[in-house]
Nucleic acid binder design. Structure first.
Lengths: 345, 345
DNA sequence: CCCATCACGCGAACCGGTTCGACGACCGGA
DNA sequence: TCCGGTCGTCGAACCGGTTCGCGTGATGGG
C-alpha cells in the first residue's frame, strides 16, 4: 500500500500523487479527485519513515525527562500531558526519552540518529552538560527550567527564587519568626537541580533579610520522608512555626508529621510552598502556595520549540513565570509557642 | 555524515560498512577496525528513518494514553515511567499518543503511517473500538486492562472485580454493615471504563453476598469532588461507616470530607480501596488498600509486547494481577453509630 | 496562422540505510 | 598444476516517499 500502488490505480505517476497530497504544485481537480478516491478506497497513509528520510523532518519532538528514574512527581505528569497535547495541535508526535541510567545513550539515539526534529528538556540543572551539548550543536531545543547562564538559550522557567522569597515574606508578615525549608532530596541538590538551588537561595536570602531564624532540610520525594523530615525539624527547633516546601511528593508526609507531633495546621503551624494546584488541593487544610502552572509551561515550551523549528535563525526566546500565591487554608498568624519564644523581637 | 561518507574515508564500500556494523556478514578484523576508527572520529550514527525505511522496523513502540485528556492520575504517570524504562532496556523508544480529542487521527498516525512497531494501550473500555480495530488488523499491541471479551487478546490487567470484592469482605469482617463505593467520574463509567465497571460489579456483588447495605457513587478525579462526594454519602445515609474507592485522585478530598463531617478515620469511619502504594501513603492515616502495581504492569506490558514483536505468530498471552490488601491505618472495626443502627442484624 | 505562455503531468534522481548475488583472492587437496 | 571452496568485499537494487527539470497539449494574442 505505497504511493506507487496509488499511482498505478489512479493511472498517474507517483509524483503526481505526491503533489496532489502536498499541494506543492497545482494538480487539476479531475486528477486530484481521482487520486483521492483511490486513497479513500484503500485507506492509504504515507509511510512516515520514508517521508522523514526524503524531506529531513520527522515531525516528532523529543521529551527528555528526569535522570531521576526512580521517582516521578505529579508535576512531571502535568508537563508530559500538556506537552503531548500541545504538540499534537502542531502535528508533532512526542518521543519520550529517559535520560535515566544512561543519559548519553538515549541522547545519542534522539539526536545522533535523527529521530526527532527538536527536543524539550525537563529537570534542568544549573550546570547541565545536556544543555551545553545541545547549545554547542545548535540543536533546536527548549528547556523547562534554566541553567546558571541561561541568557542565550531557549527556555520557559519558573522564578523559584522569587517564589520561595514570596513565601518567606508572606510568613514573616504573618508574624512567623522561626521557619524551615523543605527541599528536594539531597541527591538532586548535589546534582545541581535548578529549582532546588534557586528555591533554597530565595528562601535563605529572604529569611536573612527579614531577620528570621531559618533552617533548611533535604527531603526524599515521598510521604514517609516528609514525615521524617518534620520530625527532624521539630527536634532541631521545637519552636519552629512554619515551613516552606518545594517538595510536592512529600507534602502528605509533612502534614502527617505535623499531626503526629500534635501541631494543628494552621493554628499552631503554617505550611506553604511552591506546588501545583492539583496537589495543593489534596491535603487538608488545602495548601496556600504558589501554584506551579505546569500545563501552561508545557504548552509554552512546545510553542517556543515550534517557533524555533519554523525559524531556525530566530533569536532565543524565554519565558519566566512567577505565579502569585494562592491563599488556601494552610497558613495563619503565628502565636508565641513554647517557653523560648516570648523573648524574641 | 552518512554511511557513504564513512565508506569513502575508510576506503571501502557502503555495504561493507553496513555489514561491519550489523555483523550480518563476516568482515575482516582489519577492515572492521579501520571502519570503527572513522566512525569514532566522526561520531557517526546511522539515520533512524533510513534504517526504518529499509528494514521495516522503527524500534519504537506507541503508548496510547487516555481519552481523558483533561485529567491525569498518578497511576498513569507510573505506567508511563515504567513503560519507558522497560522499553529502553529492549532498545525501543516510546512514542506518546494522546487518543484524546481526536482518537482516530492520532491512531492513524501511529499505525497507518507506520511510526511504531507495536503499541501499548492504557485505559481500556469494556467495549473498545480501538482494541477491536487493532485485533482486526492483527496489529501487535498489548493492553493495560482488558475488554469484555479479552480471551484472544494480549493484555496485562488488574482483577478489579476481585479486588473490590476483597475490600468489601475485609470491611464486612470488621463488622461494617453500611458501606459506600466511590467510583471514577460518571463520564468514564458511561464510556465503559473497565476498572470502573468491574470494580463496581465486584463491590455490588460482594456487598449483596454479605447482606450489606451498599450505595455507589460517581466522583470526579480531583480532591474537591471527593469532598463533595463524602457529603453526598453522609447526607444519603448518615450511618454509613466505611467506603471503598478506586479513585485515587479524589482520595485527599474524601479524607477532607470525612474530617469536615467530624468523622475520625479509622475510629468512626473506615476507608479502603484500590490505589497505588505511593498515593495510599500520602494520606493520614495511610490507606489500607490493594496496591496497584503500576510499575510492574508497565514492565510486563513491554515484555509481552516485545515477545509478540519477536514472535509474530506466538499465541496470545495475558497476565491478571490481584495484589493483596496492604494493611495500613485507615480501617478499623465498626461500632454502632447514630440512632438507626442498633436495630440491624 | 504562428508562436509564446501556461497548466499539468511525467520520469529520474535523491534521501541513507539494508540486503542479495556475484566476483576475485587465497587456500588446500588431488 | 588445476580445481573447488571459503572468505571478504563490492555493486546494484530496493524501501517509499519528495522534488527538480522538462515535455506536451491547450490556449490566446498579435
Amino acid at each position: 500500500m505505497n504511493i506507487g500502488e496509488i499511482a498505478k490505480r489512479a493511472g498517474v505517476s507517483r509524483s503526481t500523487v505526491s503533489y496532489a497530497l502536498s499541494g506543492k504544485r497545482p494538480v487539476s481537480d479531475e486528477t486530484r479527485e481521482k487520486i483521492q478516491r483511490v486513497i479513500d478506497d484503500l485507506g492509504y497513509r504515507p509511510n512516515a519513515s520514508a517521508r522523514a528520510l526524503a524531506n529531513g523532518r520527522t515531525s516528532t519532538i523529543g521529551l527528555v525527562f528526569p535522570p531521576a528514574g526512580d521517582h516521578y512527581t505529579g508535576m512531571q505528569l502535568d508537563f508530559i500531558g500538556s506537552v503531548v497535547e500541545a504538540a499534537a495541535a502542531y502535528d508533532y508526535d512526542v518521543l519520550l526519552s529517559p535520560s535515566g541510567v544512561d543519559s548519553d545513550r538515549s541522547f545519542q539515539r534522539l539526536l545522533g540518529e535523527r529521530r526527532v526534529d527538536g527536543a524539550i528538556l525537563m529537570e534542568i540543572r544549573l550546570q547541565d552538560d545536556r544543555v551545553d551539548h545541545l547549545i554547542a550543536e545548535n540543536f533546536p531545543a527548549v528547556c523547562i527550567g534554566r541553567t546558571a547562564q541561561p541568557e542565550g538559550d531557549w527556555w520557559v522557567g519558573l522564578d523559584h527564587t522569587a517564589l520561595a522569597a514570596a513565601c518567606v515574606h508572606y510568613l514573616a508578615d504573618l508574624g512567623h519568626r522561626r521557619i524551615a525549608f523543605v527541599n528536594r532530596p539531597e541527591r538532586l541538590l548535589r546534582a545541581g537541580y535548578e529549582s532546588a538551588h534557586r528555591g533554597l537561595d530565595g528562601f535563605t536570602k529572604a529569611a536573612a533579610e527579614r531577620g528570621l531564624t531559618a533552617r533548611t532540610y533535604d527531603c526524599g520525594d515521598d510521604a514517609p520522608s516528609g514525615q521524617a523530615c518534620v520530625e527532624r525539624i521539630l527536634h532541631d527547633d521545637p519552636d519552629t512555626t512554619a515551613l516552606v516546601t518545594l517538595n510536592e511528593a512529600a507534602l502528605g508526609g509533612l502534614y502527617r508529621g505535623l499531626a503526629h507531633a500534635g501541631r494543628h495546621v494552621p493554628r499552631d503551624f503554617s505550611v506553604t510552598g511552591v506546588v501545583a494546584a492539583r496537589w495543593a488541593e489534596t491535603v487538608t487544610p488545602q495548601l496556600t502556595a504558589a501554584d506551579v502552572p505546569a500545563a501552561q509551561m508545557g504548552r509554552l515550551a512546545v510553542e517556543l520549540l515550534v517557533e524555533r523549528l519554523d525559524h531556525p535563525d530566530a533569536p532565543p526566546r524565554q519565558q519566566l513565570l512567577a505565579p502569585p500565591i494562592s491563599l488556601r487554608g494552610s497558613t495563619g498568624p503565628a502565636y508565641a509557642v513554647g517557653p523560648a519564644s516570648p523573648g524574641s523581637a
